[in-house]
Structures are given as C-alpha cells and as structure tokens.
Nucleic acid binder design. Structure first.
Lengths: 269, 269
DNA sequence: TCATCCATGTCGGAT
DNA sequence: ATCCGACGTGGATGA
C-alpha cells in the first residue's frame, strides 16, 4: 500500500470523463493496483480505478505524473507537490467478513417461515425463480386457487418495487401463453403445470415501506406483506474470506512490522 | 485527516451488522468525521461511516478501541496494534469537480436536438416533468396526434427501464382520469389540456442498449430511440465545487505544509 | 462475456 | 425529514 498526500489535479477518462481541479488530496495505491483518491470530506472517493493493468510515472520538471491504466480507462494524477509519499509493507488479510441483515438472509428466512408469513394456503416452492426476465426472490403456490405466487422481497419497499413484481408477472404469463414449459424445469419436484402462471398472485414483502407503496400495490393488484424484523436474529451465516490475498503478499504479523518511525519512510518496495 | 494502519477487528451495527475478523487494515478518519476502513485489495472499503456525531476512544489494557457513532449507527474498531497513527493538517479543498457524460447532460442535449432525434411532429415541452409518481426526463408533445410524449433517457437501457416509462404513463393517465389539472401547472406556457395524457406516447431513448430491450419495448408499446454519442461532445458544464469545506479547515497552501519527515508525526490536532 | 440484482449502497435535488 | 433517481455506481451470481 502506497499513501500519497499531494497537491494535484486528476483527470479520468473511460466510461465517462471527469476533471478534478487542483487541490490537496489523499491518494491510496493498493497492493493489487487499485487507486483511490479522497478529498477531505465524504465517504466516496472522487476518483478511483480497479483492475489496473499498468502504471506510468514520470517527472515533467514541474509536475510528477502518475498514469494508471485499466483495459478501457485511464486515470491521470498530475502532482504539483507530493507532500507525503510513503509505502507500507504488503500485508495479506484473509480474515472473515460477516455481514448480517442482507436481503438474501431475509429471503432465506421467509422460505423457512412461509406459511406463517404468507398464509396456510400458500406453499413454498423455491427461491430465485427465473421468470425469463429476471429472477423472482420467492416462488410459492396457492393450493386453493392453484396459482403461482410471485414474491419480491425488500428490506424497505419503494413504489418502483411494485413494478419489479409486475415485470415478473408479465414474464411468466408470457411463458404460459407461449407454452414455454421450460420455465417449470427449475422447480424441484415438478408436479406443477404451466397453467399456474396464467394469473399468478403477486406479493411484495418488506420489513418497512415508503409512503404510498401500499396504495401503489392496491392499484396494481399486488398484495403487500410486512415481514417484521425477526429474520434479522435468525440468519444463516454469511462469512466471506478473501481468497486472492496471498497473490499480493506473504504472511506478516503486525508485530513484525517496523515501528512507525522507520516504516513510514521505507520508500522502497 | 488521520491515517491509521492497525491490526484490528471491526464491528458495525446500524442498518445492518457486520463483523470483520482481526487483520491489518488502513483506517482513514476525515476532517468531517467520516471513517473509512480499507483492506489491501479492492476499490470499496469493508467498513465506512459518514455523518459521524461522536467519537469515543479508550484503552483497554490490551486494546485501543475507537468507537464512532452516527445518529442510528455505530462503528467499533478494536485495535490490537496501531502500527501507524498520524494526523495530517486539515486542508480545505473547494476545487471544481467536473463530470462529463452524465445522463443529465444527455437529457439536456436531447432537449436542444428534439426534432432531430424524435421527429418533426414532436415538440419539446420540458425536462424533469413530475408525473405524480416520479419525474420523467423529457416531456414532449405530438402535434399530429395531440398527445403527450413521455421520454425516459438512459445511457445504456436495460429491460427494467421500459417499466420506468410504463410507471410514468400510469401516473399521468391516472391524473387524466381523475381530472387532476394540477399536473399542467408545471408546463411553462400552459396552453395544453389534460386530455393530452389520455394515451401518451412512450419513448425510451438511450445511447446503447442491453440485449432484449427493443423486444421488451415492442411488447409494451414503447418506442426505442437511439441517441448516438454526439451529445458527449456538446455538453453544458457540470462543475460542482464543495461548499461545506471551509467548515472543516482554513485555507492552506501545499507549500506551507510540513515536509514529510515532520508532518507525518504531528500527532496533535 | 453479458445480464440481472443487491448494497450498511452514497449522493444530490426536490418536496 | 423523506422521497426519488442517477452513479465512471461496485460486486456477486448465474446463464
């Protein structure tokens, strides 16, 4: 990791084009080549670039230019005064990162508490049902009316989400009309018929809701169901460890790192 | 700006809950209180927090704990070994950030090249037309059929975007049915009647398009129009300067900053 | 590679 | 304060 504090201009060109006028910023260059440029306020960097393929660095009399290129983009940092330019040792970090409270977990919890939340007459079929135009979070079956139940899960539902369900409805109804039986193949025990998609029930299930969503639901024949917050306390683990870390560094213990006074000035790799 | 390299655990709790196991990370604490924690690879931080209200910091024999709180969230950083902990002077940065190639600029360009792109019979009325359920990028008028033209602009259109137009159509048709004349108030020279929204024309205008979008458009009576890339070279400026910067620092010139050897160890504010 | 969808999304603008 | 939509969205996942 290289850390630079510099009076600089930044020009990005690629998917878009940005120019950041001269000022003092903090620049990080990570071990994998990632470049991140931060101003003094705010969570998001003004500029950044991942998947860097090559670095060019040269002095121009007045300016020290750093040019990072990826496949289709480039980031030019024109430094007028690099106040700080230090490198820290490359350190691996394969620690677990556990994230609780994702929509995925909410979805999984609902699959396990299906009757309780959606009623006795509805049975759970599967998660991530491919409609032909995106995947619907939960697919159920209304045993009374013999219809599919399409359920979109959100933590906080907004009006736009109603249309996401309508999109899934259009897709499965299209499959039903066009007799595309392939859509049934993904259902585990396949004793269902295509006709269940003729007029599917639609549900938007969320923990909380923006104003006007219930109204929007009503107007479009979508049922709104509140999931509550119980799912947050009964989640499947979600740990993710980085696997690619040892590409960039060998194992190091923090105690082996140089103390501040010398490590910060190790300007060599 | 404070920069910490530390062997630490991180626990976030708020909208979600995350736990990052022990490892060596880089921690930034910006002048506005923003906290950002980066691992050795990747563009995005593992943890972050903006709008910080208070910091708590205490030693626990073994560990040095930093606790940042915002209104509804908190971020606990448990440090086992702070290898680096330096503060850089607070520096203002009110420089312009200019972003070229935004949808906003594409929208503005289309408003200036309306006939050329959408045809002679269509006239431009306004941008950001409030439909009652979200704002439609462009509102035009078909002088032949005497209908409103609702246009959604995208750089790259995907199938979901078709439904965004349908949503605006539903909203304005609802206004027409319910005789809500208020929707006309936002039109500059208001010699239009509510009936123009009875059966509006729908257009999705984009520079490029994902596979299947034209098909989706056809099925829902939406016309797809390709905008080309010309707009990228004829844009209105989009500069944004930070206004709140001087809250956090007074003006400083890079040349006034301490050279590396001393500034990094200025551990006082 | 492309398409889709989530995100502790963040951010800016408008109501 | 909330709602709304864009973003150089990034990142993961499945086809």
């Amino acid at each position: 990791m290289r850390i630079i504090q510099s009076d600089c201009e930044v020009i990005y060109d690629g998917r878009g084009h940005t120019e950041l006028a001269r000022g003092i910023r903090l620049i990080l260059i990570k071990d994998d080549g990632t470049v991140i440029i931060h101003r003094t306020t705010g969570v998001k960097p003004t500029n950044y670039m991942g998947s860097v393929v090559s670095f060019d660095e040269y002095d121009d009399g007045e300016r020290h230019v750093i040019l990072a290129k990826s496949k289709k983009e480039q980031l030019m940092i024109i430094n007028y005064n690099m106040v700080v330019d230090v490198r820290m040792p490359k350190i691996p970090d394969d620690a677990d990162f556990n994230n609780v409270g994702t929509e995925r977990q909410q979805q999984e919890w609902l699959s396990r508490h299906f009757h309780e939340v959606f009623g006795e007459s509805n049975v759970y079929i599967m998660r991530e049902f491919q409609t032909g135009d995106g995947s619907c979070d939960l697919l159920g079956y209304d045993t009374v009316h013999k219809r599919a139940v399409l359920i979109e899960v959100k933590r906080k539902a907004v009006k736009k989400d109603v249309y996401q369900v309508l999109r899934y409805r259009d897709a499965v109804m299209k499959a039903a009309v066009e007799r595309k039986h392939g859509i049934l193949d993904q259902i585990p025990s396949g004793d269902y018929s295509l006709s269940m998609f003729d007029k599917p029930h639609l549900i938007l299930a969320a923990e909380s809701v923006s104003r006007g969503v219930e109204n929007e639901c009503e107007q479009h024949g979508v049922k709104f169901v509140c999931t509550g917050t119980e799912w947050r306390h009964d989640t499947v683990p979600n740990s993710v460890a980085r696997k690619d870390v040892n590409k960039y560094a060998t194992r190091t213990d923090a105690n082996d790192l140089e103390p501040v006074s010398s490590s910060l000035f190790d300007d060599n790799e």
